[in-house]
Write a protein that binds this DNA or RNA. Sequence first.
DNA 1: ATGGTAGGATGCCTA
Length: 259
Amino acid sequence: MRIATWNVNSLRSRIDRVEAFVQRHDIDVLALQETKAREDQLPLMGLQALGYDIAVAGLNQWNGVALLSRVGLEDVEVGFSDMPGWGDPVAAESRAIGATCGGVRIWSLYVPNGRKPDDPHYTYKLDWLARLRATASGWLDGETALVGDWNICPTDDDVFDVKQFAKSTHVTPPERAAFQGFLDDGYAEVTRAHDAGYTYWDYYRQRFERDRGLKIDFVLASPTLASRVTGAFIDRDERDPAQGTGSPSDHAPVVVDLG
DNA sequence: ATGGTAGGATGCCTA
């Protein structure tokens, strides 16, 4: 089984690339983030014609997550979408959607960005991660995958210039500790060993062309699932403006193979 | 300290 995760930065504007991507790599399950639209706004007929069942969560223009699966899509659940103290409608944020696909419980996660270390959104990010960790620690016995845009660079190697991020989110010790907490609990990050490259490059200043990126998209697997991983890779071609149809997302997809 | 680009509920907010 081949699963993938991709922050598409608007599924509407990326639909041609998504359809080409799943076909080119023979993807069984695809977790999407930043879909940026309601389900009724999305042109999903092409993907359905390719055999994918689709579950979408998210009502606003910034977030939204989705799961596509051609190996079953059962027990769909939306979670971790509330924003305490913000007063936002729960469904609007929709930062996580989970389902059982081919016997594997897969969560598509869009971890809050945090904006700035002194911003309330940063506190919210840490709180969100703590709540996810507390719940996810109960899923370690099964075959569980926590995939998506973690908005954290776990090591200095995951930033093109760590000095430039001295006053930024993504690299602060509390964020890194939050990520490490999942590993301490028993989850394994299963992509780095196969592909240590970046997964995100900002649109401006030709960051992709100069390979000045961040590694922030990860696949965390429970022990039994991690033992099934046979390979992984980052599809940089999908971030390349010179390749494919239409403009690229600022993230590249991450693909994981299970034996 | 600022600005650069992209997407959408577009002349502003978020990433």
